[in-house]
Amino acid sequence: MQAFEYIPATTVNEAIAILHQQGDQARLISGGTDLIVQLREGRRKPKIVVDIKRIPEVNQLSYNLIDGLTIGAAVPCYKLYGSAVIKETYPGLIDAASLIGGVQIQGRATLGGNLCNASPAADSIPALIAHNAIAVVAGMNGERHIPVQDFCTSPGRTQLEPDEMLVSIQVPAPRAHSYGAYLRFTPRNEMDIAVVGVGVWVALDDTRVVITAARIALGAVGPTPLFVNEAGASLVGQPIGSQAIEKAALIAQLAAKPITDMRGSAEQRRHLVAVLTRRALDSAIARASA
């Protein structure tokens, strides 16, 4: 591994100032489960590694009925499922957070890191998109908000400028009778990378019979996680049932742009998008109607 300087930053401004000064030469570390591997394999060669874990803002984890959920960029996955209220309110996010690596990876890995690493197969990103999450980003000129569905631009690349950092992820407060679900397909039952991942979120009316809103996002079937607006839209106003679900699954399948690689073939992935979209919708609807 190439040598580097390690700076534990204590404020957002300090971290941003280093980024501003160093540009591509600096890299932020939080859980390190992606970055340390990349450093070791020489895939990234920063001169400076800035540890953000001592910055208060990136460690916040809070929930209320008005603002919803705030997940600091350095909050490790295990803290999400360690919170009973988050587990109850956002099971669709927990689905993803409890799938990233194994238990020992979740002790360090963060949703923020998962997002900034911008892997097309990242587990948390389709779930965050489905939940309409917003990335809160800090830069030299203050904060800006980027919808997670627009955050990733290509494999490993995001909308972040070289001198910007992710501070937190905001997930809206849930409306009545709404729930999400995330499902992925992997050959092993754990410790694997998604061949396909599907995040969904649905809201039902007060009778819990008609879908009033829905969002569907796909992982590992394109250069970035894909938000398939039209698939969710097709469900709006539809009574829950296999007909509407099948249609949404078909739309999602058509939107997928999979490739063949060592983890799966394009044909297999296209097929799995429909299967997993159906199953994830079933799961979210079951949660919402319970």
Binding site: I29, I36, V49, D51, V103, Q104, R108
Partner: peptide, 12 residues
């Protein structure tokens, strides 16, 4: 918290 020590820097 359970972690992989290969994915933690000594300085951390």
């Amino acid at each position: 918290v359970l972690v992989n020590s290969c994915l933690v820097l000594g300085v951390e």
